[in-house]
């Protein structure tokens, strides 16, 4: 009996538990990939009906900001050759907010902007009329040989220009505006107020086939 009671009282040796836990920790540390579901969002245009030709959109040349990227990743921005994308975001911003020839609605929009954005407006007759729908369009045209990286870099800068404008309208930085999730009503309201009347007009043309 005495010997049996002794066996009951015996404890499991827990000294190696720490080692096992440590090994497991190392295993999970190594296998973990923190899922990153981030990226640049883009909405594609609806598919074309073969029976219906695409609607002809008449836009004045001054209302289009042309960005061409060739197979060597050289840029042609508004007819001007560039090697890099330096300062592109600022140029796009001042293009969007040019207000060269605003109609009544656009003038009302202009008056609603904060002073920092009003300061950007050049009102030059050679640039875009107004930032509302059909007023200022950014057009990217690539070649089939253009690298994806360069294309994404340009798209990134265009998005940056828009987010900065939207953010400034609601008193946030572009970064803060971009990370709004829109899950609460207050955030949704901020998002809507930021982009109200200034649609993100980015046109991505079919790449041409030469040189690939």
């Amino acid at each position: 009996m005495a010997s049996k009671r002794g066996r009951m009282a015996q404890e499991v040796n827990a000294g190696s538990m720490a080692d096992i836990a440590f090994l497991l920790l190392i295993f999970f540390l190594v296998t973990t990939t923190i899922a990153s579901d981030k990226g640049i969002m883009n909405i594609l245009p609806p598919k074309q009906d073969p029976n219906q030709p695409p609607p002809e959109v008449e836009l004045n040349e001054r209302n289009i900001f042309n960005i061409l990227i060739n197979a060597n990743d050289d840029l042609l921005i508004e007819g001007e050759f560039r090697n890099d994308t330096k300062g592109l975001s600022e140029e796009i911003k001042s293009f969007i907010l040019n207000f060269g020839n605003p109609d009544e609605d656009a003038t009302a929009l202009f008056n609603s902007l904060p002073p920092s954005l009003k300061g950007i407006a050049d009102q030059s007759p050679e640039s875009s009329d107004h930032p509302m729908s059909g007023g200022a369009v950014i057009s990217i045209k690539t070649n089939r040989g253009t690298s994806y990286e360069t294309y994404l870099e340009v798209l990134d800068l265009i998005k940056q220009a828009y987010f900065e404008i939207y953010g400034e309208r609601v008193g946030l930085s572009g970064e803060e505006y971009r990370t709004l999730s829109g899950q609460s009503a207050a955030e949704k309201e901020l998002i809507d107020r930021g982009k109200e009347n200034i649609p993100m007009a980015i046109s991505i043309a079919e790449p041409d086939k030469s040189g690939s």
Binding site: S36, G39, I40, M41, P45, Q48
Partner: peptide
């Protein structure tokens, strides 16, 4: 993707 009517596209990047 346009043909398939899945028009919401995200260019994954870091």
């Amino acid at each position: 993707l346009r043909e398939a009517d899945a028009r919401k596209l995200m260019y994954a990047s870091v």
